[in-house]
Simulated scan of single mutants.
Amino acid sequence: MSTRIEGSTAPGFASLAEVFSSAFTGHDAMGAALCVRVAGETVVDLWGGIADPRDRSPWTKDTTSVIFSCTKGLVSILAARLVQDGLLDYRTPVATYWPEFAAEGKEEITVADLLAHRSGLSAPRDLLNVEDVIDWDVVTGRLAALQPLWTTGQGHAYHALTHGWLAGEVIRRITGKTVGQYFDELIAAPLQADAWIGLPRGARHQVAHLRAGTSLTALVARQVAARVADEIDWTERAMILGNAFPPELVDATGGFNDPRPSGGAAGSGRHRIGPGAGLDLVIHRGGDRRSAAAGRRHGRRRHATADRRHPDIRRTTPFARWGMGFRLPSLAREFLGAASFGHYGAGGQVAFADTTHQVGFAFLTNLMEAGPDHRATAIVDELRRILRK
């Protein structure tokens, strides 16, 4: 039985509905949303499937979802706006804005190093738990006091969760606002968008329930089987911070199904919330245009690449290319081409902008898969084909 897909597509983009529908094949109880904007016009606005497999409630036009690391793109827009306003300089040491950060030899780590995953703070040395991660000051205090896992300049490794606290604290020190407050002020509120960094209690009923798919559970099982006793898996710790999240990031009520922990934003595909798609909203719906210009001008600046000079310390993201907090096109994720920048999130989320094609793209899903996940990739490939006609 095929999944019912609702929404609309503009002339010339109908094939994207077919590819979106095919993403549900073989994925029981999956929900998802897709939105694509071109030159300020919404050309694809689709949703379908199951928002909560526990009661089979459908994904509707107002369903929101955790977007995981797509949040890094949103926060990077905020950082770029501070650069645009002369309040932040990527080349300046983090400790200039956050003095406590200078501990343990971190005096020379720059904001650019921090945003591009080169700070050596990808995971805590001591285990964190849920109570720790719901307290912003506890985590930022631990990170400020942390000795880096490697020497800055040696390479980079993905700061899966710590990136949010690190970048967010720099923003807080400059603005006096939490990263969620600043995001609401600059982006969400002017656009009247259903998007939050820090989910308000009144919006919890809108959020889709997350579920680990078979490929994700199989990956975790292989990692557990390969684990070496008394040896720290720093990549795993970067993802779960010790005891704060389950290995799959979600379970029935915990992990990112628990509304309390910090670490990700929530938004709806219908409102195009994602790093690049959110930027597209700012550009084309009369939001804060200075923030949009800042993202275009500063966010795509290349800073880190997995190569012989700057290897991936953990060897987990080969050929990754980083801008100022944004992922840039690479073999790992091509997006639409050289003018694209954005991010993807755990389990299958993808959001980006492309300045050549004036595109904002967001794909959200609550069924988390791992490894070669072609659901969003196939949609992006089809969009690329359409735009090249």
Rank of each mutant, 00 (worst) to 15 (best):
L219S: 13
L74Q: 04
A157K: 06
E108Q: 14
C35I: 04
H310I: 10
R302D: 12
L279A: 07
G31Y: 05
V170K: 05
I379W: 01
R321Y: 11
G7K: 01
W196E: 01
R308Q: 13
T71F: 00
R222K: 06
L279F: 05
D85T: 00
T42Q: 10
I240A: 08
G360D: 06
A294L: 05
L127H: 14
A208N: 02
R270S: 04
T9H: 12
H156K: 10
A221N: 11
A102C: 08
E382N: 11
A123W: 04
A338P: 13
P124D: 14
A79P: 05
S15P: 03
D288L: 08
Q358P: 12
Q206P: 00
G180H: 12
A294M: 08
H159Y: 07
L115S: 08
Q349Y: 01
R272N: 11
G337R: 04
A339S: 07
Q192F: 04
L149T: 06
P275T: 09
S69F: 10
V133T: 06
Q192H: 15
A23Y: 03
P259K: 12
A103E: 11
P200C: 00
A112T: 00
R301W: 10
T235N: 14
A293V: 12
G202W: 13
V380K: 03
L216G: 02
G176I: 05
A144R: 07
R333M: 15
R314E: 14
R327E: 12
N257Q: 05
P329E: 07
